[in-house]
């Protein structure tokens, strides 16, 4: 039975059909929500609430997107509601990540301190680097992690991300970019701690 038939059956009240739709999508939706929330507890709550909400709204599913995408968009809304209540901090404006920002006018010195990806990559096992980068993504404020995950993990277009997060395209772009810039900052201090010296 294909997805369309399962949806029709579920909408007519067949729980087994609905359970099959959930079964086929739960792992993928969980992986998405876990990335989005960066913690297991919130991810579990959101997944559970989203699937319950899917039951409430099952009649509204029109099949424009796949059932999995529909579930993910419900989960995204749940996450947005949860994180709207939590205190969020803002990342610095893009300009502040540029060399020379906040310096004493000594551009030369700042550019020496700039983090170079080539160095840590040769110093670290790639597994460890991957863990470090993923850990840093988890530390981002929600609104930045959200756009980063939607854009680069879920591979949605900037326009689509803007629509889903109810932002203008311009501010979406700015959030998307500030995520890796902040990561570079975070990683740079991680490596400094580890090696006891500035990364250059």
């Amino acid at each position: 039975m294909d997805e369309k038939q399962l949806v029709a059956k579920a909408q007519a009240g067949d729980f087994e059909a609905f359970a099959k739709l959930i079964e086929a999508n739960k792992q993928k939706v969980y992986a998405f929500v876990r990335r989005l929330t960066a913690n297991t507890e919130d991810a579990e709550d959101i997944l559970q609430d989203s699937f319950l909400k899917a039951i409430d709204k099952i009649d509204q599913f029109r099949g424009e997107a796949s059932f999995g995408t529909w579930l993910s968009s419900i989960a995204l809304n749940e996450a947005r509601v949860l994180y709207a209540r939590k205190k969020q901090f803002d990342l610095k404006p893009i300009e502040d990540y540029l060399p020379g920002a906040g310096s004493h006018g000594d551009d030369q010195q700042d550019s020496i301190r700039l983090f170079d990806w080539q160095d840590p990559q040769s110093q670290l096992e790639s597994d460890e680097l991957r863990r470090t980068v993923n850990g840093a993504v988890d530390k981002l404020p929600y609104k930045y992690r959200e756009v980063f995950v939607l854009r680069y993990i879920e591979e949605l277009s900037v326009k689509e991300v803007a629509r889903l997060t109810k932002q203008t395209v311009a501010s979406t772009k700015s959030r998307i970019l500030r995520a890796p810039l902040a990561l570079r900052d975070m990683l740079s201090s991680t490596f400094e701690e580890r090696y006891g010296k500035k990364v250059s």
Binding site: A31, L129, V133, Y152
Partner: peptide, 12 residues
């Protein structure tokens, strides 16, 4: 690189 490393990671 951030994007590459994040995509390589195993999903939870």
């Amino acid at each position: 690189q951030t994007v590459t490393l994040c995509r390589e990671g195993k999903p939870e």
